[in-house]
Design a binder for these strands. Structure first.
Lengths: 216, 216
DNA sequence: GCCAATCACATCGTATACAATATAGACGTT
DNA sequence: AACGTCTATATTGTATACGATGTGATTGGC
């Protein structure tokens, strides 16, 4: 007998609002009134407030005192700052991971590379969220292997951005191929236990992603 | 007519609980029942839940589903991870700050150095929270000058730890003097707009603090 | 005597009513 | 006409009642 934990209102609210933001249903800066969300989701204000607080510290909304939540806006300066931090943090994670990663995880990462390359070969412009998910998994593996849980949490906090900004549909084909090559080479560097190699590659990989995004 | 904004229950709860944790009134891992906090603070559960969520993502308590909040415990591995991240993040902030800091801020930082050295000369073992506050201000100046607001938020998140761990009363006198010299030299490096110098110093400064804490 | 099922209690999660606050518009004054 | 003030309304903040869930003790069976 499978126990169905029966989704909780607070989670439902969280996911609904989060999806709405990530899919661009609300404009940046839009005022998310609690009452509107009540009508939309069909639960009471309490779990909605809870969800909004969570989204606030994830950076997807901004809560001001007595004035509610607004969808965060993502201007260029903000994005530059985030990529700057990603270079720093994920580069560091790669360096740490080289010392600690085991072969099982390396195999999984190789498999992820296979899958992503398949999609690239097939679709040319991989707009599918599936591709983004695989990419997330790849990066998450490195963060987990770093052994520093807080490091992973930090990166997760800053990599929450609207889907428009995370989709790879507008990548130039050669940018995508380079990105795939980076993934492969990072796995190789990690296999060699060469932390500095892995770190340099990861930094380059993220900077390349930043450039591809900015140039689109 | 001075308007007194009349402290809000949510803030009162937040500050009370936070102070209690930082001052060690509760053991690490202690179960913070909402009802107990209601009796203690004298407000309803709603703002208390609010405060607990805030403290959760600051890392001071850990909330588990349907089982409430527990005071976070700070073992050695956790502290090592945090200092590792501080070296990374604050070092980076120092490097960025060198390019952007203005003379007004440099003057303020010099003044903070003066004040802290006064205390060190006077007290020998500066247990006062005043010293910790000055130190915080010093580090905050560099984070602000870095120009990356998220960087500052991240550091703030991980530097929330019980006062026991932030007090300088157990520093050896020579460790403290070295620390003061670091502060001075960082200001000098920033004045020279030498980011790498400032970064190296900041990294050394934080590692030294880690060693002084671990060796106490 | 030991184990398991069950029940009672403590605690968290949610809903709703009420209070405090901010915002926008109308109105009067200058 | 511009400005400030005042009031009506919308929105958030708080309190409290109720429901769901987890936990520990008690009891019944073996």
């Amino acid at each position: 007998m499978t126990k169905t934990p029966r989704e909780r209102p607070a989670d439902k609210a969280y996911e609904t609002i989060r999806d709405g933001i990530l899919k661009g249903h609300w404009q940046g800066g839009a005022h998310l009134t609690e009452q509107k969300l009540v009508d939309l989701i069909g639960i009471s204000r309490t779990p909605i407030r809870d969800a909004l607080r969570r989204l606030d510290n994830e950076g997807l909304v901004t809560i001001s005192r007595n004035s509610g939540a607004r969808v965060a806006r993502w201007d260029k300066a903000e994005i530059d700052q985030i990529f700057d931090l990603r270079v720093l943090l994920e580069g560091h994670a790669a360096a740490l991971a080289a010392d600690k990663i085991d072969s099982a995880r390396l195999d999984k990462m190789t498999h992820l590379c296979d899958q992503m390359e398949d999609i690239v070969k097939h679709e040319k412009y991989p707009s599918s969220p599936h591709f983004a998910k695989l990419n997330d998994q790849y990066h998450t593996h490195i963060l987990s292997a770093s052994g520093n849980a807080r490091l992973g949490l930090m990166v997760r906090q800053i990599t929450n951005m609207p889907l428009v900004l995370r989709t790879y549909a507008h990548y130039a084909p050669d940018s995508l191929e380079r990105s795939m090559q980076h993934h492969r080479e990072i796995v190789t560097a990690l296999g060699f236990r060469d932390g500095l190699w892995a770190q340099s590659l990861m930094q380059a990989h993220i900077r390349a992603g930043h450039a591809a995004l900015a140039g689109s």
